[in-house]
Write a protein that binds this DNA or RNA. Structure first.
Lengths: 343, 343
DNA sequence: TTGTATGCGTTATCAC
DNA sequence: GTGATAACGCATACAA
């Protein structure tokens, strides 16, 4: 039942040459070294015998695993599957397999995941998480190239692919202003994450520019980009402030705002407008459909994979940071500011 | 920069023993063979030197990769992430890494993915896809244990974890009957998949038992469990039949039905009731929230992982099939049958 | 152009 | 109990 695998030696014996000759033929880079006729014979019988290179032997020899580690907070967050597929689409044709690690936004789990990746000798690492410092991620205690996705690297020279968060937030503010909103609250993301920080800072800046209310009490920070945190934050805001719209730092937080509004008996999109960020799958089917900023998740994954490949192939990696443009998508969760700000 | 990895030989040299002794100490199974004192010294210096076993050398020797392949149709389908996390939760503590393959419901891609997995010498395979025949999956041309998840294996003795589809469909029919529905349509899944087939057959059977209309024209088959197919099927049904409810074979198809109803100017849950299957994430937030059958996705993944571990550890795998119980979740997409069936 | 020899880092089978 | 040695399958520097 367990058919023993065909090895180079088996083929060599069959053809009557030395295993190293077979090795040369089967390796594209060295195939030119060998007599074309005998090479053809070897290739043919290798094929006939169903030869499959032993990845362990290969890796042991070359120290290349052809495995890429991808670290994300949580695959159940709809933002990540499209990114992952983008990564795979680029990497798979090059022979790389992807191993995922969910960190659940725990720096401890990030650390452990990285440890596992290094043990497994991954050839590269793409991380969409952002708790650990750059230093830690960049210097893994091994020579592993890293690419950040959806997170800006502080260390210069470290490749990353991000969206223009500032432009997205600016578009949201402009949209809300055009609807007549003057008091806009912000459910801010974790300030340890570059996305949370930039969106927050841009929010403040754009409100100021637009002449909107800038009370610090209109802002509530969260510990994680998760629905529960969004709900908590929005509830707190509703308790202490008056406003007609909430800008959430991402879709999941916006979803939490939906919950908080429902709790308070307010109608989202009429009493209070809500905006998200990311345009993750299915938010167009929510109740009400979410006004948000669309970001090209697939392209982000593809870009990250390409940046990684650049490093792996030692190409003078021309670009180091890819910045993608977001796009405002207006749906029913935003509407004209009510004359009297509810609660 | 590239610190060379510490090897057994390095440790041996440091302690003054032979590498094989170090190997014995570092392997739990053979540690008992060696003098406790020297063993302690070795373990200590190994730790101090930051020893990490080389997985390639280990795998080359033992033919175990500690990698499990997981084949799914599409990670962007919200049903799968919870299953995957369930799998990882069980497998990770045992040292296994998971490599995913998306097949996009293409048997060709399934074939290629399996090929890749076998090449990479995965220790086991979990598949949530269902296009290829059992024979093909079970006999991979290598000695790789397989577990099916969310698919019933035809070949006896092949482990699988499934839900009681029949019970789920029966609960839906009972629910609809209690709401006064008499003409119920079915958007059936692909009949090549066990879930599609069983749900269809149960639908027919339960309608008969309940005395509902059983016209064959009330049923439309789809080619894939995808939103677009659901929309197409529901549109076709609306064109040719009268009914007050649609039972979709899963949530994604139900989502397609939403679209078709909207196209036809009908209000889901009032004019026509719609039900799904799976209770995938976010369907409780749809417009309207979807009445569906909840299935324990996490447990399915965990169960599959456990069945696989049973095979990997050569435990006399006691059970071979795990059947989980589904649960009807009533939401706003179902309501009382309107007096006059809207087209 | 091809064969020889060696080593990648382990585990396992021998002796001692 | 421990050391020596071979072997896992491959790539490659060197020799021919």
């Amino acid at each position: 039942m367990t058919k023993p695998r065909v090895t180079l030696k088996d083929i060599a014996g069959r053809v009557g040459v030395h295993p190293s000759t077979v090795s040369r033929v089967l390796n594209p880079k060295t195939r030119g070294m060998v007599n074309p006729e005998i090479a053809a014979t070897i290739a043919e019988t290798a094929d006939k015998m169903g030869y499959r290179p032993n990845p362990f032997a290969y890796s042991l020899r070359t120290r290349r695993s052809f495995i890429i580690g991808v670290m994300i907070p949580d695959i159940a967050n709809p933002v990540f599957p499209p990114i992952i597929r983008g990564i795979e689409r680029i990497l798979e044709p090059h022979g790389y397999a992807v191993v995922l690690a969910n960190t659940d936004n725990s720096s401890e789990r990030e650390r452990v995941s990285i440890e596992r990746f290094v043990e497994r000798q991954v050839d590269g690492l793409i991380t969409a998480t952002s708790l650990l410092s750059d230093d830690f991620l960049v210097d893994l205690g091994a020579d592993v190239p890293v690419v950040f996705v959806n997170r800006r690297a502080e260390t210069p020279g470290v490749p990353s692919v991000v969206v223009n968060d500032a432009a997205g937030i600016a578009a949201i503010i402009e949209h809300l202003v055009s609807l007549g909103h003057r008091r806009v609250a912000h459910v801010a993301g974790p300030q340890l994450m570059s996305t949370g920080k930039i969106r927050y800072e841009t929010f403040v800046e754009e409100c100021r520019k637009a002449g909107l209310a800038t009370d610090a009490t209109l802002i509530e920070f969260t510990d994680a980009f998760m629905e529960g945190e969004g709900r908590r934050a929005a509830t707190a805001l509703l308790k202490r402030e008056k406003f007609t719209a909430i800008v959430a730092a991402n879709d999941l937080l916006a979803l939490g705002c939906y919950g908080a509004l429902a709790d308070a008996g307010l109608v989202c999109g009429r009493d209070v407008s809500v905006t998200g960020f990311n345009d993750m799958p299915f938010v167009d089917r929510l109740q009400p459909p979410l006004t948000t900023v669309h970001i090209p998740l697939n392209e982000m994954g593809e870009g990250a994979a390409r940046l990684l490949l650049d490093q792996l192939m030692e190409n003078g990696s021309s670009e180091t940071t890819i910045t993608l443009q977001p796009e405002l998508v207006v749906r029913a969760s935003t509407g004209p500011a009510p004359k009297v700000a509810k609660k």
